[in-house]
């Protein structure tokens, strides 16, 4: 039951990764520039994607094929296509609320606050993660703490410290981006005693819908050996014309929308 991977989830669900910013190598970027860039990745545009989510825990391993629609940071809709048993099970997020549609019983259930900590479809993401707004700059103070070559790659480390009153459980977050195009490489989440609680690793950078993106991201909780959730995009389209009204309970309940 983890929470607060704002960047992560927004990426997973909205799938609007960076329209590659041209960066002049001469200028020294500030941590604020990089954060704004990352935040901008999730604003305004819409997307439709097909992805595979693989969950490995000590109790089960499961693989789902998902179809996801998103618009801005307020709206998203995810449907399970496979496995067959769960086909049609869907989640709608509209602003700060989440509903699940359960085709087996043909019912829509609103997820109450007390269940927000629950896992989303058995993954290492919680329902709460889905609705977390990306508020990195609001919730954290940030600075560049490393710039150079690591593991043969030129990277920048941003260290984010939560503001004293921010509703954030972490003690510290360290984000690593590629130096040349600020594509995220890794995000590490530390607890209040500064032990690593989990990390998110981006990989498989390739061209999707004409853009170079990390097509795969894997979240690993450090206290559970061998467990992870991995999301891999197989198809994605950006900047579609989707109305806000698409993200409604009516669409959620209509299994024909695929």
């Amino acid at each position: 039951m983890r929470r607060g991977y704002m960047i992560v989830i927004s990426m997973m669900v909205f799938l609007c990764l960076s329209p590659l910013v041209s960066l002049s190598g001469t200028e020294a970027p500030s941590s604020g520039d990089i954060l704004n860039h990352v935040d901008d990745l999730f604003r305004g545009s819409s997307s439709r994607a097909t992805m595979v989510m693989k969950v490995v825990t000590s109790h089960y391993t499961r693989e789902m094929t998902l179809k996801a629609w998103s618009k801005g940071k307020d709206y998203s809709l995810v449907r399970i296509l496979e496995p067959l048993k769960e086909k049609g099970t869907s989640t709608l997020k509209a602003r700060t609320n989440i509903w699940n549609y359960l085709p087996k019983v043909k019912r829509v259930i609103k997820v109450p606050s007390s269940m927000m900590g629950g896992s989303w479809m058995g993954s290492h993401f919680t329902n709460d993660d889905l609705i977390k707004e990306s508020r990195m700059a609001d919730d954290y103070t940030h600075s560049i703490t490393f710039r150079g070559i690591r593991d043969g790659q030129a990277v920048i480390d941003l260290t984010l410290i939560p503001r004293p009153d921010a509703a954030v459980v972490w003690g510290k977050v360290v984000a690593t981006v590629r130096e040349n195009d600020w594509t995220p490489v890794k995000i590490d989440y530390y607890g209040e005693k500064l032990g690593l609680e989990r990390s998110l690793v981006f990989s498989d950078i390739r061209e999707l819908d004409g853009r170079m993106l990390p097509a795969s991201m894997r979240i690993t909780p450090t206290d559970k050996q061998g467990e992870y959730t991995e999301v891999t995009y197989s198809e994605i389209e950006f900047d579609l014309n989707i109305e806000d009204s698409f993200f409604s309970l009516r669409t959620l309940e209509n299994p024909g929308v695929l």
Binding site: S113, S114, M116, G117, T126, G191, E192
Partner: peptide
């Protein structure tokens, strides 16, 4: 009713 969470987990309370 509420959910409380820390870096180590969460619980309904």
């Amino acid at each position: 009713q509420a959910m409380v969470s820390s870096a180590s987990g969460s619980s309904g309370v």
